[in-house]
Design a protein around this nucleic acid. Structure first.
Lengths: 336, 336
DNA sequence: ATGAAAGCGCTAACAT
DNA sequence: ATGTTAGCGCTTTCAT
């Protein structure tokens, strides 16, 4: 269109000729710790500048076997939590010169076909968030010496590190908060059945309530999806002995629950009914939701991931990042 | 820790030996259209499988000069619109075998130092969303034959393509809608001063209102930020002749405006005051906001970007993706 | 249809 | 401190 032929970018060799040095000297000029005299460095740099030379990271990767690329697999980004996590991860990794290569994919089941793609890119590490890890991928990565970090998921696989929020402590604190608030009947809305995170939160909650002598909470499943959650909450609230306290396994579902309670059932959320979430996403603070929730600090999780990546390959660490109960208006506040 | 030495992945050469063929035959076996007999293909494939061979895309990139990686630069992801855009882009590109490499960065000013990094990765194209394009980067890319696609931004630079929503039509429709709703005094909350998108929306709105003979709208600046927007809206509403109709340059700021109007000034949004946004992000549909807004269809924008990338390098296209006025409850509905 | 050989742009010994 | 040499793992002529 412009008739402007794409002239290929200049190489280290071009720079070498222009500066009257060898090609390896050019390489050294762009290697931080290399031994090179100030004058030749200067010569090379100015030659490079005038040629518009940029070191080719692909070629560098081929030989150093370090791409500085981190593969990030996410299922669905409609959940605000993952948008925040993505941001935090990037903020943590970018200053270290590492970039995120996105493998966001079909939310259904094992997204493995896509994940095997990751390996082909010589990524330095793989971060899996909201994705189930197939044992075959885990094995492949281990063989290739690529560290795998699971965020918000557990895994039995050898060699994979995990970073999770404090699901059990959080769920128990929420249960206590709800019980001290004097509710008649509680309920829990689970996320995905096969998600370790959702299961931990749900089971801890139920255990805590039951062991305190309260009646067993109702249970519904929202699949972390708006429609399913809406249906689940409707059914819960339409029942004969509707719950007056609901714990949703994440904030996203809690927002939906609030909508249903407030706009479909005309309930005053925080008085007639208490609704609590998990994650403490940004929107939770909006006066519109004023969601009481348990925080999962993405910043801290991203830092943990970053440290794991920095500290070399052969570690397997399981880190629980602590959170705290964030009390707002969506749940009755115990008087005591 | 595991004591398990990272054995390097097997190469095409390994497979060649195992299958008793030449290395180039292995290459052909993994090249879709290559001429290879069914039997040798079979031999190679099974050898590859048993060795766990994966073609090294980095090496391939070095020679083909196509990485199948698209660089994506975003400023801030806290804006739901960009999360949606990221999703849409990925959904569109992933089936084509193209991955997004993220360059999300400091929101302040020209994020250029980071962007020059992009070139080093041999990306096939660069998508810039919510980022100002420096002319030097534009020039570098043009020289290297790398297509640049701006989403939601205009640019005078030669050779860059742009994809934008219908800012002017949208702003005019919003102005009309507000005027037909019979408001006394209108106001507009602009985003960033130097954002072409915000300027287009703001100017078209003001022009439309003024040319209809209405009194000139007030103007405030929210910088696409929560705090600044909150302050701006407060000032607007605290004034002597407060506006009863506000157009915010995006949904994100409109949400903040609703919060301030409703929770700080006790206004009934949709009756006492009308608030309209731009983008139609998912949350806008929530009954909590019920935001009247003008849609910017991310799906269509992503498709446009994808087509631009597919169709080769040398095009410069300026595409406006049409949107529509989405009427909900946050603004008075004209009776006529 | 297959193999041999060259080389993509770079880093990393090894010399000097 | 600098140059020489040998690859990294692959695609691509060019032969056969």
């Amino acid at each position: 269109m412009t008739g402007h032929a794409a002239k290929r970018p200049s190489t280290a060799y071009d720079v070498a000729r222009a500066a009257g040095v060898s090609q390896s000297t050019v390489s050294r000029a762009f290697t931080p710790g290399a031994s090179i005299s100030p004058q030749t460095l200067e010569k090379v740099v100015s030659a490079a500048k005038s040629l518009g030379y940029q070191p080719n990271l692909i070629a560098r990767t081929l030989i150093t076997r370090r791409s500085n690329i981190i593969g990030l697999a996410l299922a669905h980004m409609d959940n605000e939590f993952y948008a925040m996590l993505l941001n935090a991860l990037n903020d943590e990794l970018a200053p270290l010169g590492r970039r995120l290569l996105l493998f966001s994919g079909d939310p259904r089941g094992e997204s493995d076909p896509m994940l095997s793609e990751i390996l082909k890119y010589q990524v330095d590490a793989i971060i899996l968030a909201s994705t189930t890890l197939s044992s075959s991928l885990a094995e492949d990565c281990r063989a290739a010496g690529i560290p795998i970090i699971l965020i918000n998921r557990a895994s039995a696989a050898k060699g994979v590190s995990t970073i999770t929020g404090d699901n059990i402590v959080g769920a128990c604190m929420i249960a206590d908060f709800l019980m001290r608030g004097g509710h008649r009947q509680l309920a829990v809305v689970a996320g995905l059945e096969n998600s370790s995170t959702s299961r931990e939160r749900e089971e801890a909650f139920i255990r805590q309530v039951v062991s305190a002598g309260h009646s067993r909470p109702y249970r519904a499943v929202g699949h972390y999806q708006a429609d399913a959650t809406r249906a689940a909450v409707r059914q819960l609230l339409a029942g004969p002995n509707a719950p007056d306290g609901i714990f949703c396994a994440n904030d996203f579902m809690a927002f939906v629950a609030i909508e249903v309670a407030r706009y479909e059932f005309g309930l005053d959320v925080g008085r007639d009914i208490s609704i609590i979430g998990f994650d403490n996403v940004q929107s939770a603070a909006s006066p519109c939701w004023a969601l009481t929730t348990f925080s999962q600090p993405v910043r801290a999780m991203a830092q943990a991931a970053s440290m794991l990546i920095q500290s070399g390959e052969e570690i397997e660490l399981h880190q629980r990042v602590p959170g705290e109960l964030i009390v707002r208006g969506s749940a009755r506040i115990p008087t005591s």
